[in-house]
Computed example of a mutant assay.
Amino acid sequence: MQKPVYKRIVLKVSGESLSGNNGYGIDAAMISSIAEQVKEVVELNVEVAIVCGGGNIWRGIAGSAKGIDRATADYMGMLATVMNSLALQDALEQIDVPTRVQTSIAMQQIAEPYIRRRAIRHLEKGRVVIFAAGTGNPFFSTDTTAALRAAEIEAEVILMAKNKVDGVYSADPFKDATAEKFETLTYLEVLNRNLGVMDSTASSLCMDNDIPLVVFSITEQGNIKRVVLGEKIGTIVMKGSVN
């Protein structure tokens, strides 16, 4: 068996990646593809936690811009992440990957409440844990949720799966043909250059807790496994200089 370089990971899946090429809603084929890739990693005896975004259904900031109270709009976004998490849980369990959804907002009929020790126990038993409903607080992104949960469960890395880009660029590669792709970055560079990898709160949390981040494309089948096995794809962001 190939030996993974990480034992416990947090996979951050954006809402947009769950919509496939549709740009909105949940694409069944894309959900199935992600589930299959996660299964490949679980079969390497890697403990996998997942944080789903909700941008394919609702964005709190966009809702606020339309006149909805920001806190209310953010709570609506948290509910969108729960919908995505349940869809991903279903896809995983259809291919025999035991999965638990834990929510930061209590909704006992459909998911467990987030309890750190219980989450770690699930991971130790080989179950995938999906953290839904963000941090449970408005004004915080799911990027921050990924950073926070990674610190809490002592994950070794955050894998940020993208569906449009294959790493971090100096500018938007779709708008600027001269945009340069970075192989390595530090969190200070990300913050100082405003590269938009993740929001500043999440970046600072990762930097303070020395949690590396790998940004890569999820559209190519098998990429999650490649990252876990240590293959150099995408962009790695770390606290200090990368050798």
Rank of each mutant, 00 (worst) to 15 (best):
I31C: 00
I233Q: 03
Y6T: 00
S104D: 05
G25D: 02
N84D: 07
M78D: 04
L18V: 06
L159K: 00
A132I: 06
Q102Y: 02
F140L: 05
I153A: 01
K39E: 11
G23Y: 11
F174P: 03
A171Q: 09
R116G: 02
A71H: 05
N22Q: 13
V82N: 10
A71I: 07
V197S: 06
L229S: 11
A62M: 11
A119Y: 06
A151D: 08
V48P: 04
I158M: 13
N243V: 06
S85W: 08
T201S: 09
A147T: 02
T219R: 15
S203Q: 04
F131M: 11
S64K: 07
A28G: 13
M207I: 08
K125H: 15
K3F: 13
Q94E: 10
I50W: 12
I57K: 03
D27V: 09
E43L: 14
V227M: 04
N22G: 14
G167S: 03
F216W: 12
G77E: 00
N243F: 15
A171I: 08
L86Y: 03
K7V: 07
Q108S: 14
A150N: 02
K175A: 12
I224D: 03
L191K: 06
S170Y: 11
L185I: 09
G234T: 07
I110Y: 08
M83G: 04
G63Q: 00
Y114N: 01
T235M: 07
V197D: 01
K181N: 15
A161G: 15
N84P: 05
Q108P: 14
M238W: 09
N137E: 05
Q2K: 15
A150E: 07
E124L: 15
D27P: 01
I31T: 12
A87F: 10
I57L: 15
P113W: 13
G53A: 10
D208S: 10
V5D: 02
V13L: 13
G167T: 09
M78N: 03
C206Y: 04
T81G: 10
F139D: 07
M107Y: 14
A73H: 10
T135Q: 05
G134T: 07
E183D: 14
S14T: 14
N192P: 04
T144N: 00
A71E: 11
G53N: 01
A146M: 03
R59C: 00
R149F: 10
P138F: 06
A171V: 08
K12L: 03
D96V: 06
I224M: 14
E47M: 09
V5Y: 05
I236A: 04
V5F: 12
A147H: 11
I120K: 14
L88S: 12
T145Q: 04
V13A: 01
V10Q: 09
V41S: 04
Q37D: 15
L229A: 08
R226G: 10
K7F: 01
K181E: 12
A91W: 05
N21R: 11
N243C: 13
T184M: 08
L148D: 03
A179F: 01
A155M: 01
E124D: 14
V197A: 10
I68F: 14
Q109Y: 15
D90G: 10
P138R: 11
C52W: 10
S32P: 05
A133P: 04
C52Y: 03
